[in-house]
Structures are given as C-alpha cells and as structure tokens.
Deep mutational scan, measured.
Amino acid sequence: EVTIKANLIFANGSTQTAEFKGTFEKATSEAYAYADTLKKDNGEYTVDVADKGYTLNAKFAG
C-alpha cells in the first residue's frame, strides 16, 4: 500500500491537502478523480508530479 498526497492549489490562493491510499494505480486514480469533482466550481487544473509520482500538485485555474 502506498499513499499519494494531493496538494490542491486554488485560484484564490487557498490550498487543501488530501491523501489517497491503496496500490499506486488506485491511489493515483482516486486523486485525479477527486480533482475532477472540484473542476465544476474551481475550473480546469494542471498537475505537476513530484516525489516520483507520490505527490501531485494540482493548480486550479479558477
């Protein structure tokens, strides 16, 4: 089991951190699915991958 950390950075400057656990593939998929649920209210996002894929920095356009 691994933990994927998602740093969510919103256009207004606020941030949120979420963690997803499971296999690498499952946890990564859940992190992206969570970011997708936030698109409606926060706009499209881009992701910078860090820490060999164990940290995802998602920046929302607003």
Rank of each mutant, 00 (worst) to 15 (best):
E1Q: 13
E1G: 08
V2H: 07
V2Q: 04
T3L: 09
I4C: 03
K5Y: 10
A6I: 15
A6K: 01
A6M: 15
A6P: 00
A6R: 00
N7L: 11
N7T: 10
N7C: 14
L8D: 00
L8Y: 15
L8H: 02
I9D: 03
I9S: 08
I9G: 03
F10L: 10
F10Q: 02
F10R: 03
F10V: 00
A11T: 08
A11Y: 08
A11R: 09
A11V: 09
N12P: 01
N12G: 07
N12Y: 06
G13P: 00
S14E: 13
S14N: 12
S14Q: 14
T15N: 07
Q16W: 13
Q16E: 12
Q16K: 11
T17W: 10
T17N: 07
A18G: 04
A18W: 13
A18V: 15
A18K: 15
E19M: 13
E19W: 15
E19V: 14
F20E: 01
F20Y: 06
F20N: 00
F20L: 00
F20A: 00
F20K: 00
K21F: 12
K21Q: 09
K21V: 12
K21S: 10
G22Y: 04
G22L: 03
G22A: 04
T23P: 10
T23G: 06
T23L: 08
F24G: 01
F24Y: 10
F24M: 10
F24L: 09
F24I: 08
F24W: 10
F24Q: 05
E25W: 09
E25I: 10
E25S: 10
E25D: 11
E25T: 09
K26D: 11
K26Q: 14
K26W: 11
K26E: 12
A27G: 02
A27V: 03
A27Y: 02
A27M: 02
T28V: 12
T28H: 06
S29N: 12
S29D: 09
S29G: 10
S29A: 15
S29H: 11
E30D: 14
A31S: 03
Y32Q: 03
A33S: 09
A33D: 07
Y34V: 02
Y34H: 06
Y34M: 06
Y34N: 01
Y34K: 03
A35M: 15
A35V: 15
D36L: 06
D36A: 08
D36R: 04
T37C: 14
T37K: 13
T37W: 11
T37H: 10
L38F: 15
K39T: 11
K39M: 11
K40M: 11
K40D: 10
K40Q: 11
K40R: 12
K40A: 13
D41C: 15
D41I: 12
D41T: 13
D41Q: 12
N42C: 15
N42P: 02
G43L: 03
E44R: 07
E44I: 09
E44M: 09
E44G: 08
Y45P: 03
Y45S: 01
T46F: 09
T46C: 13
T46N: 07
V47A: 06
V47I: 14
D48A: 11
D48I: 14
V49R: 06
V49E: 07
V49L: 10
V49H: 07
A50W: 10
D51H: 04
D51K: 03
K52R: 12
K52D: 15
K52H: 14
G53R: 01
G53Q: 04
G53H: 03
Y54C: 09
Y54L: 13
T55L: 07
T55D: 03
L56P: 00
N57L: 08
N57G: 03
N57P: 01
A58N: 03
K59Y: 15
K59R: 14
A61Y: 13
G62C: 09
G62D: 07
G62H: 07
G62V: 07
